[in-house]
């Protein structure tokens, strides 16, 4: 059998070795613009990494994308426009915060759904009529006293 895991392992070569610290020249001189670029970068997935944002990663591609984000921010693109630019190239996969569309309704409404189910169940339990509990036997009474001591 063909070693499939090998194919999976080497499916893609990532561009260059990961580096720990990026280039200071990358940062925008304008503090507000730099912060905005960071905020946008944190919404975007580093595609060659496992689960990091473009801002966190030191892969070559992430660095390129960071640079592009900064160029576009400097050119006056809104956050939405920068993200749309990325989505046009890499699809919704690049967004760490998925857009709200029918596909993600269940995802985005999951907090509400969970609360409704939980609250509904608790509400039902509240409405339940008390079942007549059999009186405690003397032995049970003693056991209970022991327990709650």
């Amino acid at each position: 059998m063909k070693p499939l895991w090998l194919a999976l392992l080497f499916a893609l070569a990532l561009a260059g070795p990961a580096r720990a610290v990026s280039d200071p020249a990358e940062m925008l001189p304008d503090r507000a613009q730099e912060l905005r670029a960071e905020a946008v970068g944190q919404q975007l997935r580093c595609l060659v990494c496992q689960n990091e944002s473009v801002e966190d990663s030191d892969a070559d591609l992430a660095r390129d994308l960071r640079r592009i984000i900064r160029t576009r921010v400097q050119a006056g693109d809104s956050n939405k426009q920068v993200i749309a630019w990325m989505v046009a190239r890499y699809g919704d996969f690049v967004r760490l915060r998925p857009p709200l569309r029918p596909l993600t309704w269940v995802l985005w409404f999951s907090p509400l759904l969970a609360l409704l189910i939980g609250g509904g169940a608790a509400g039902l339990a509240l409405r339940r009529k008390p079942a007549a509990a059999p009186p405690l036997s003397p032995a049970e009474r003693k056991a209970l006293a022991d327990l709650l001591r």
């Binding site: 944190q42 689960n51 944002s53 690049v94 760490l96 915060r97 985005w108």
Partner: peptide
Amino acid sequence: GAKISVGAPFFNAT
């Protein structure tokens, strides 16, 4: 058949 990511911004928001 859709490829999407769910990351930190989603979890922080919800």
